Computed example of a mutant assay.
Amino acid sequence: MSAVPVAALDPTDPDAGAVAHYGDPAREQRVLDTAAGLVDRSHRGVLAIPGADRLGWLHSLTTQHLTGLAPMTGSELLVLSPHGHVEHHATLTDDGTATWLDTGDAPGLLGFLERMRFLMRVEPAEVTADWALLSIVGPQTDEALISLGVGPLLPPDLLAVPEAKFATGSVPSRPTVVYSAAALADGGWARRMAYGADLLVPRQTVPEITDALGLPPAGIWAFEALRVAARRPRAGFETDHRTLPAEVGWTGPAVHLEKGCYRGQETIARVHHLGRPPRKLVLLHLDGITTDELPARHTPITLEGSDRPVGFVGTAARHYELGTIALAVVKQNLTPDSVLHVGPSTAAIDPEA
């Protein structure tokens, strides 16, 4: 079983620090989908924010309601531009003394947070060099957590998104999604997610944790293929400079629609109360006939009979059951009957919402 690094295939890939696969990507996907496997995502950036003001400070800067976040729970948040466009996404966990953010752009998010410190009692810092993120993926996640002495953990608690023009007080004063977590014996924590669980561990303990779990390893290709099939967006992949949270489904887990002022809040409220956003996240099925190469990230999508782009590809993958698929952001008025083109390939929108 030989690990194939992403960097050996494409050193410019955002996942260049990860393993692409261990010899059989389709088998690895099947393991993650039907049992449980371990994905090393230690190339993902990690920020630590200790300090007494950390939760109130993050509450004021981001889209999430965080003032009452309980120790050993987590959630998701966004940092928006003044016009409401997504700039950063992070998943967070608070351990009672520090808030930990894992994100795809640690330097960029840290730079924003450092500019916003003012006189607050917070000390944000990037700690990626010392801490590694591992993901247990699959329906047997609870059994794996039990082997570490921290499971099972409660599944994610996600609030329903209120209807447009909802009454004041309709949204509880709590995070819109709550992830349960538990401390690990040798430091760090385990956090229950919809796809399994994330483990944040001291980097030097990764071999020890891996041995203790005894799970088959799976590469980032398998993780990403299942993410695409589950329609979970990823910042920088299914987003561009004008992405609104509602376009990619982040209003539910990452945006609290009834909290105090934050940058971009006016746009969030206007889009939610006036109706559909201009674009939407969809799952595409590509024909795979004219080429077996996956389309590059942000490849334009066109409608048959026109050269004008109607969207872009975010992440494309070869799924072990669905074939060649891709997450894409397209114009709101497109339907499953629309005949689309992605480079030389014909594509169709999956009819399931």
Rank of each mutant, 00 (worst) to 15 (best):
Y179R: 09
D10F: 09
L199D: 04
L283V: 11
G305C: 05
L303N: 06
T103S: 11
A194V: 04
A185S: 15
Q204A: 14
G196E: 09
L286E: 14
P300T: 07
L119M: 10
D40I: 04
A347E: 02
R242G: 00
G149Q: 15
D337P: 01
G108I: 01
R174I: 13
L215S: 04
T99N: 03
A296E: 13
A269Y: 00
H298W: 09
A35N: 08
A348P: 03
D198T: 08
D53K: 00
R192T: 12
M72E: 09
S170K: 13
E208A: 14
G275W: 07
F112L: 12
H59C: 08
V4Y: 11
T335H: 01
K331L: 03
G249N: 06
P25D: 11
A218R: 02
T205R: 15
G104V: 05
L61R: 11
A326C: 00
Y22A: 01
P82R: 05
A185R: 14
G305R: 09
A52H: 09
T205M: 07
F223S: 07
L9F: 07
L32A: 06
L340H: 07
T205V: 07
L184I: 15
I349R: 04
E247C: 15
A16P: 03
A182P: 08
T290Y: 07
L110I: 02
L66T: 12
L226R: 14
D287M: 03
P351E: 05
Q29N: 03
A317C: 06
L286V: 11
E163S: 13
Y262D: 07
A20H: 14
A348C: 05
I146R: 15
V228D: 06
S60F: 11
R231P: 07
G252M: 10
Q140P: 00
D15E: 12
P207F: 01
A348E: 11
P82A: 04
R191S: 14
D24Y: 03
L69G: 00
